[in-house]
Design a protein around this nucleic acid. Structure first.
Lengths: 329, 329
DNA sequence: GTGAAAGCGCTAACAC
DNA sequence: GTGTTAGCGCTTTCAC
C-alpha cells in the first residue's frame, strides 16, 4: 500500500503539501502541485478514506433510509440519490427499514456511528426521532413523508394528485368512489385520503368509502373485499399505491368485476407494468427519480454549508396518466 | 463525544481492558467486564467505527455491486444480502453499476479505498477485473453470473430453467418457439439461450429463432419485432427476463397477437405483476431472496476465515409457474 | 507557499 | 488478566 509519505518522498516535498495539492487547496505552487500529482499517479497512490474520515471526523458516506426497498417508487428514488451522490464524491449506503421502527432507529444510530456525511430518510412516522443526528450535526433530508422536526424535505403533492384522480373518476360518471389507502401512521396515506375527500366534497358526494390497510398486496385485497361487502358497495376505486392496486385487482378479478367496465380504478404510483395489466391501469405518476436527485442536491448544499438557515421544502407535482381502468362505459 | 478513555476512567480500568471487554474478548475478568459494560452504558458510549476500521485496516462495510437496480430481481437479492449482513454486524453499500463497465470498475476501486470487509457483485461480464480486491485480500462473492477468476459464487440454474420453459412450450403444441434473450456479454443471456436450444434439439426442431438484445423493455420490443418480421415467424416466445417480456408483450399487442391464443409466451423471472397481465404470464421463477442470503452467508464465512480453500459454488434451482400466456388453444 | 508535528479514537503487541 | 504505548494514514494547525 502506497501512502502519502511515499508520494511526498517521490515528489521531494512534505506530506502536508501532498495533502494540500491533492485536495485542490490553492495555497500551493502550481508547479509543485503538478509534481505531486505526477508522483501520486506514478506510484498509483489511493487515498485511504478511513484515515481521512477519522481525521476529518466525517466520512463520505450517505445513509439512504427507505421504508420499503421492494416498492418500485423507492428504487427510482434511490437511483436519483445515488447518481447525484456519486457525482459529488459520496457513496450511498442503502438501508431498508421495512416499515419497522426498530430497524429504522438502528440505522439512525448507524449513521452516527459511521459519522455519515448526511442522511436521506423516508421516515416511518412523523414522530421518527432524528435527534441523534442533529446532536452530531449530520444533515438530514426527509423524503416522501414529512417530519415533526425542522428539516429539509422533498415531497410529492399527494393530496393534489389524489384530488385529481378522484375528480377524474367522478367526471367519468362513477357515482360511488372508494379509497383504499395505507396505514394511518403513513402521512402519504392520510394525504391521499384527504385529496379523495376533497374531490367528494366538491362533487357533493356525502358517503365516504375509505379503508386503511398496510401498503401491500394483501392489504389491497382485504381492503377491496371489505368495501365491496358493504351495503352500498363502491362502483370505483382510488388506490393509494401500486402494491395495494395489485391486491384490489386480485379481489376484483375474484369477483368477476372488470375495471373499465364494471368498476372504475385508478391508483397512485406509475409502474412499468401498469400499461400491460388487463385492462391498462390509469395512474397518478410521481417523479420518483427527481425526488431522489432533488433530495440529494439539498443534502449536498447542506453538507457544503452553502445552505444555512431555515428548512427548505420542495413539493413536486404529479401527472395524471389515463388508461382504460378508469373508463366509465 | 464520549470515547474509550472516558469509559476506562469511569470503570476504573485501562482502555485496553475496555476494548477487550466490549469486543467480547474472553481474557477479561467477568466482573470487570460487567463494570465496563455498565460504565459504557451509563455514559452512552458509542464506538467510533472510523477509528476502529482505520486501526483494523478493515471496515464493516460490504459493497453490493449490482448490474441494474431497477430490475426487481436484484432488489430481492439486495434484501436477502442486507438481512444477513445486518444480522452479522455489517452494513451494505448498494452500488448500481447500470450495466456500465466504467461505473462497475469505479465501484471496485471504491471497495478498495473504503477497505470494505467484502464485496458481492453481479459482474458486467466474465472478464470483469477484480484483481484490485484480491490484491487487498477483500473477499468477493459473485452472483447471477460467473467470472473468470476463482471466486465463490451463487447462481441459478439458468440453462435448466430455460430448458424446462421451452420444453413446456413445445409440449403445449407450439411448433416454432423463439428466444428473446439479453446481450451476448451477459452469461445468463447465453445460458438461457443454450437451455432453449437444448429443448429444440431434444424435440428435433431444427430452426433456431434467436435474438440478443439489451435487457430492457425496448430490447424486448425490437427483438420480438425482428423475429416476427422473418419469413417463417415464430409462434411462441421464451423470453430471458421480465423487462424484455414487457417489451415483447407490447409488440405482440401492437400486432394484435394475444398470448395464450395466437402465440405462446413464457419468461424468466417472476414478478409481482405477472399474474395480473392480460393474460397472466407463465414464468420461470428464481429464488432471488435466497440468492442474496446465500451469497451473504458465503461472504460471512470467508471474512471470518471459516472458509478457506477453493471457491465454493452454489447453484439454486428454478420453479416453473404456469399461467395462461403459454397455453396452446 | 511550505514543513514539522500533533492528534483523530481505536486495537493489539508487548510487558508485567 | 491487565496496563502501557505505538501507531493505523491522514488533515490541519502553527511556525517560518
Amino acid at each position: 500500500m502506497v501512502k502519502i509519505v511515499d508520494v511526498a518522498r517521490e515528489a521531494g516535498t512534505s506530506v502536508a503539501t501532498v495533502s494540500r495539492a491533492l485536495n485542490d487547496n490553492d495555497r500551493v505552487d502550481p508547479r509543485l502541485a503538478a509534481r505531486v500529482r505526477a508522483a501520486a499517479e506514478k506510484l498509483g497512490y489511493r487515498p485511504n478514506h478511513l484515515a481521512r474520515s477519522l481525521r476529518r471526523q466525517r466520512s463520505n458516506l450517505w445513509l439512504l433510509i427507505i421504508s420499503d426497498i421492494e416498492v418500485a417508487f423507492f428504487t427510482s428514488v434511490a437511483r436519483g440519490v445515488e447518481d447525484v451522490a456519486v457525482a459529488n464524491g459520496y457513496s450511498v449506503v442503502l438501508c431498508n427499514a421495512d416499515e419497522d421502527e426498530t430497524k429504522e432507529s438502528k440505522y439512525i444510530q448507524l449513521a452516527a456511528a459511521e459519522h455519515a456525511a448526511g442522511v436521506i430518510i423516508s421516515p416511518h412516522s412523523t414522530q421518527t426521532q432524528i435527534d441523534r443526528l442533529a446532536a452530531d450535526s449530520i444533515p438530514v433530508v426527509v423524503i416522501d413523508r414529512s417530519l415533526a422536526a425542522p428539516v429539509d424535505w422533498v415531497m410529492v403533492d399527494s393530496r393534489g394528485g389524489a384530488l385529481a384522480a378522484t375528480e377524474h373518476l367522478i367526471r367519468q360518471g362513477w357515482q360511488r368512489p372508494a379509497c383504499v389507502t395505507g396505514p394511518r401512521s403513513a402521512e402519504t396515506a392520510m394525504l391521499r385520503r384527504l385529496g379523495y375527500e376533497d374531490a367528494l366534497r366538491a362533487a357533493g358526494i356525502r358517503t365516504r368509502r375509505v379503508t386503511h390497510r398496510s401498503f401491500h398486496l394483501d392489504g389491497g385485497r382485504a381492503g377491496a373485499a371489505s368495501l365491496l361487502d358493504r351495503d352500498r358497495p363502491p362502483d370505483s376505486f382510488f388506490v393509494a399505491n401500486a402494491a395495494l392496486a395489485l391486491g384490489v385487482l386480485q379481489e376484483l378479478h375474484a369477483r368477476g368485476l372488470r375495471p373499465g367496465r364494471d368498476v372504475g380504478l385508478i391508483c397512485f404510483d406509475d409502474a412499468p407494468w401498469a400499461p400491460f395489466i388487463d385492462p391498462p391501469i390509469s395512474v397518478v405518476a410521481q417523479p420518483a427519480y427527481r425526488i431522489g436527485t432533488q433530495a440529494a442536491t439539498l443534502l449536498v448544499d447542506r453538507i457544503g454549508g452553502t445552505a444555512e438557515g431555515p428548512p427548505r421544502r420542495v413539493v413536486l407535482g404529479t401527472d395524471l396518466i389515463l388508461r382504460e381502468s378508469s373508463v366509465h362505459p
